[in-house]
Design a protein around this nucleic acid. Sequence first.
DNA 1: CTTGATCGTTATCGGCAATAGCAATATGGA
DNA 2: TCCATATTGCTATTGCCGATAACGATCAAG
Lengths: 136, 136
Amino acid sequence: MHDPLPAFPGYALRRAANATAAELASRLGALGLRQSEFSALMLIAENPGVTASAVGRALDIQRANMVPLLNRLESGGLIARRPLDGKSLGLDLTDEGRRVLGQARQVVEAFEADLLARVPAQHRAHLLPALEALWR
Amino acid sequence: MHDPLPAFPGYALRRAANATAAELASRLGALGLRQSEFSALMLIAENPGVTASAVGRALDIQRANMVPLLNRLESGGLIARRPLDGKSLGLDLTDEGRRVLGQARQVVEAFEADLLARVPAQHRAHLLPALEALWR
DNA sequence: CTTGATCGTTATCGGCAATAGCAATATGGA
DNA sequence: TCCATATTGCTATTGCCGATAACGATCAAG
């Protein structure tokens, strides 16, 4: 069957992202985490007391969509919300959150290593810079 | 704000795919098309009489999800279904489908060109091969 | 002190993909 | 030729991610 689509970089980008996202979702799912939850945990770990809005800005997740995400993390006992002033809430990892993030970090680092290993050596170093140019 | 995530190729891949997909969706939306609909039209154009299952396999879209997609294309007058035997339906573009696909092709080619233009020249040739290694 | 921006939140929607199941048909081996 | 098996198109439902619009409350700057 004749298929001209794979010759388009944009198409290949979407296919590659879908394929790898599915794999990461499956690996993180074993820990009860979604990719977006892992990303949020990472940012909260590196920036204790950050606000939900700030995390959302960094991850390009709308404020409105942060709410259920953080609710899941909070009711799972991974993060805590603490009032910074009358309006903002600071986010912090709980001990359990640190524990789970530790495991997730290993999973993600293994995943990223597998990803790079799949890319032929002569293209490997170019992947990240090329991708960054597309969204940064 | 400290953010270690952009250093992960997998993360950059998802961000780049999201950003570019949003842009393509916006450009194709002006023609009343979604990305998945454009992909299907392309395959049908190149393979007149293909079956929905075959298109789904090529695009990695489940049979079940092809149904509403093709229904939209058919009720929009872009494709026609013709019985191949008692079980399978062959898909063909209508004249209108060819006309719209012609416009969409230009939109997509301009989009892909813009995409590549954003990638620094020294990385450009490596993008497609690297991406293909991740899903092919 | 007022005006405008920001915060967290609710509710709702759209696009894409996954799963399970079903009736009808096609196909290949006994 | 008959039958088990695979395939086709389809329904119905679910999940994830993202987008939009709106709200009250609060903060910050003029």
